[in-house]
């Protein structure tokens, strides 16, 4: 947990700085980090918010980036199915990249699913994750105003997303899907209402799925990012 905690804090700090340098006011950035609590989605929608993109496009982008959580939820639901619904909802909210990665690394093959020891582990990890993420994000947001604008810190948001993207460049279908998406996103950059974004993502996902070998559904890849 300690190395993970440091990694979370580094990522939170960068996200906090990037949100303010990317154009959000300090109160808005604070609201975003506390309410949204999903770093990659926050950084992804940042340029859209600054350019005043239509809200459905903003939401759709965040939804696409967050879709990995649906896979996490499907993979870990059986550990939490014995809990009352309010506690399940609360647990699911904490089931982000770090919580999921550490929990399934520890209990992914457990024969008994859903005991108090597993829940204790989950809440412990989730609490450390939440605290280090929020504290470092808030620190980044407040410190961003002190840094001179000519440090090129606007670049921080792009670089932070690069850190998420690079580990995803692994298997051929994913790589080709990303290339198709990237080329189309550049080609359609003048399309109104940022519709090119949606078109290029759909095309990229379609290409990746079609290129996948038929038997690869067994090798489900988890992509712990943040």
């Amino acid at each position: 947990m300690a190395p993970a905690g440091i990694a979370i804090a580094a990522w939170g700090l960068v996200t906090g700085v990037a949100m303010v340098k990317g154009g959000l006011s300090v109160p808005m950035a604070l609201a975003m980090t506390i309410v949204v609590f999903a770093g990659s989605a926050q950084l992804a929608v940042l340029p859209l918010l600054v350019s005043g993109a239509p809200l459905p496009i903003v939401w759709a982008t965040a939804l696409l980036v967050n879709l990995r959580f649906v896979i996490f939820a499907a993979a870990t639901r059986s550990y939490f199915s014995g809990l009352p619904w309010k506690q399940r909802l609360f647990s699911s909210y904490l089931n982000g990249d770090v919580g999921f990665a550490l929990f399934s690394g520890r209990f992914g093959n457990a024969s008994e699913r859903g005991n108090p020891y597993q829940w204790g582990f989950f809440y412990g990890v989730a609490t450390v994750n939440w605290l280090s993420w929020q504290a470092s994000s808030v620190a980044g947001i407040l410190l961003a105003g002190l840094a001179p604008t000519d440090w090129g810190l606007e670049l921080a948001a792009v670089l932070a997303l690069v850190a998420v993207l690079v580990p995803m460049v692994r298997r051929l279908p994913a790589v080709l899907g990303m290339i198709v998406t990237g080329v189309l996103a550049v080609a359609t950059v003048r399309m109104p209402l940022k519709l090119g974004l949606v078109v290029s993502v759909l095309a990229g996902v379609l290409v990746a799925v079609l290129l996948e070998p038929a038997d690869s559904s067994a090798a489900v890849e988890k992509q712990p990012t943040q």
Binding site: A44, L161, L165, A185, G204
Partner: peptide
Amino acid sequence: RYAPACALTAI
């Protein structure tokens, strides 16, 4: 599985 990578690429 592919949607997040593609969405981030598109941004």
